[in-house]
Design a protein around this nucleic acid. Structure first.
Lengths: 203, 203, 203, 203
DNA sequence: TATGAATGAGATTTCATTCAT
DNA sequence: CATGAATGAAATCTCATTCAT
């Protein structure tokens, strides 16, 4: 890849992390990269395009991990589904690993994307999770005909699931510690699934 | 109170809600209120001052409710503390009531305050909760000498407690429904306290 | 005199001294005086009028002292003129006394009047001195027919004479010390008169 | 150097000379240069930066001349010091030459810099002179043990020395005439040194 | 491939002044 | 006698974007 493009990406990541998308100055990004203002427009469409280039690898990796996990879940029968705790752990670990691999970028995505085309990234991930949750909940529901799904709580849990990760990466900079911290939290979440999301139809 | 000041406040609230603090245009706020740009500076210090005037009532009401709840908790012995579920419900209801009373303003505070002097409002509330949690946890810990406190999870629960409310108000516009939704969630949170925050010292 | 008018003058003097005429804020002046913005326009024409009211007493006193001194000089014959050193001392003392009596106001007049109708006050005083110097020089010249007047130096001396006072008041806050300091300087100036201002016609 | 930058500098110098730093309008400067307002911010940091660019060459030239003169003085013994009148004349001429070379700019610096980063330029020059005067006075004092230094008059003479130049350039637009006028004045100043600055200790 | 220059629209803010009451 | 409200014009500055070279 072109040297200057890489320099631009590096200083852009730095600037976005410091100032956020909107307050980031293209002039400063270019100066820091040893280039001039117009250079950005050779390599990228515009400010948003630059931002996209900064985050796209992390974005697609994260999406890929989540999607893959969901697909594997989807192929399981309900009976199998009960025993996928190992899968779930593996998924959590892989996700954590990716989040910390792209640490700065993920931070940008989570806290500094306002105004950019990725400002809804977290929401979109939550939506993905939400849809998956709905599918899984439907399976559960068909297995327990006397239970019904609490839609709102289901949404909240999708939110919570992702929030557990975002809170972690914004508060614990070390991956190893993060891994230890996330486990009891995930268990707590799983427990909530059965306790909260499925409620008695009679109520 | 002056008529035009009120108009200014109304159109400011509208603009802040639509665009967020930073992208909100004073020009537009004033034009919408039928005034000229400089008028803001008669009634308020500056853009931040205007924002403050828009949110201050809600802010102090919310803080007052939380603080009052914490003080009442502080005056209870540990034995009593076990039986304060009613208090807790009352607190939750009062808070929900305030949040929905100041619906738009709360939404601004939660999602549109970036760049203003209130951009850390949610964090400051979480901190208040966090400190209270630490006190309560210390009481628990002294009651169960073989348990220790998981600090990170404690922080996360403070975050979660507030998040339960913010998620609610950003996803459920009707107060009555909100009240029904929040109850099982609060119970789930309380359960987490004993399950997650206090762990065996031996581990 | 009206109480509020007096208050206005006091806080105006303070503000002008701190910020200078242009940067002084009428709003602040009025607030400090416990009044509102429009009040100034009842008592005074405008900002310049207020400034004028602040300085006028000092201005006319200073002008009166100088003018009176010049008039007394004008009534003397050349022979007498040689012996007016005492007069000169008395003048110097009276001027110093007035300058320190109106200390703050004089400071404003000398260093903070830019932009006001009095921004040329010092220049106008220099002009008065200059004109007097021209008269006196003409008398000298007619007494010494082989000498001619160096016009530029004459101007500069007028400037210097005043500058000696302005430098003094801007650098020495105590009147007594000022009086001691000014004497040798005045002597030095007087000496320059004969040495510098009148030069040989042949040259 | 860029054409438009030069145009900007030219119209800025004109505007600063007419209105002074604070009242100068960037809009007008840019319009006069045939550019838009923002253009200034490509070439310069801000209004102050533009002002700096307008005056910096003159400033450093003037400082350099004064500093060089002081250094050469510093290397002389007291005996030699008595015979440096030629040096002094050369210095005066060089300074006058520079002042008139940068005529407009010097005028700006002397009378129109209020509010800019150069508003204390004259004072800083006076300070330089003052410090040099102190050194020289100390040499004199050690040569005449029965004399003491009059500090205030010393300061005033530093002021006067510079004032002689500023008065000249603000009142006499022709360099040749200026050169003729400054000589007797400098002599008068030198004479004052021995007469005024050193006084009998007994007094 | 990149530069350097410049645009143009917008932003907030300041302030003396006016005027109905 | 004074208030309180509002104006309106101007100010500096920021910035993504464009484009000829």
């Amino acid at each position: 890849m072109n040297d200057n493009k890489e320099k631009l990406l590096v200083s852009a990541r730095k600037e976005f992390l410091e100032k956020g998308f909107e307050k980031a100055s293209l002039r400063k990004i270019c100066t820091d990269a040893g280039l001039t203002t117009g250079a950005v427009y050779f390599f990228f469409q515009d400010k948003n395009g630059l931002f996209g280039a900064v985050v796209e690898e992390a974005v697609s990796k994260i999406q890929e991990i989540i999607l893959r996990h969901f697909e594997s879940e989807a192929q399981e029968s309900f009976a199998e589904y009960q025993h996928t705790e190992d899968d779930h752990d593996a998924f959590t670990e892989e996700l954590i690993s990716a989040l910390y691999y792209y640490y700065d970028t993920v931070l940008i995505l989570l806290t500094k994307a306002q105004g950019s085309e990725y400002e809804n990234f977290v929401d979109s991930v939550i939506n993905m999770v939400d849809q998956q949750y709905q599918k899984v909940a439907a399976i559960y529901a068909s297995a327990y005909p006397d239970k019904k799904i609490n839609e709102y709580v289901l949404h909240w849990f999708a939110h919570l699931h992702i929030n557990a990760f975002t809170h972690l990466i914004t508060h614990e900079p070390e991956e190893q510690k993060a891994l230890q911290l996330i486990r009891p939290i995930m268990n707590y979440l799983i427990q909530g699934w059965t306790d909260l999301i499925l409620t008695d139809k009679s109520v």
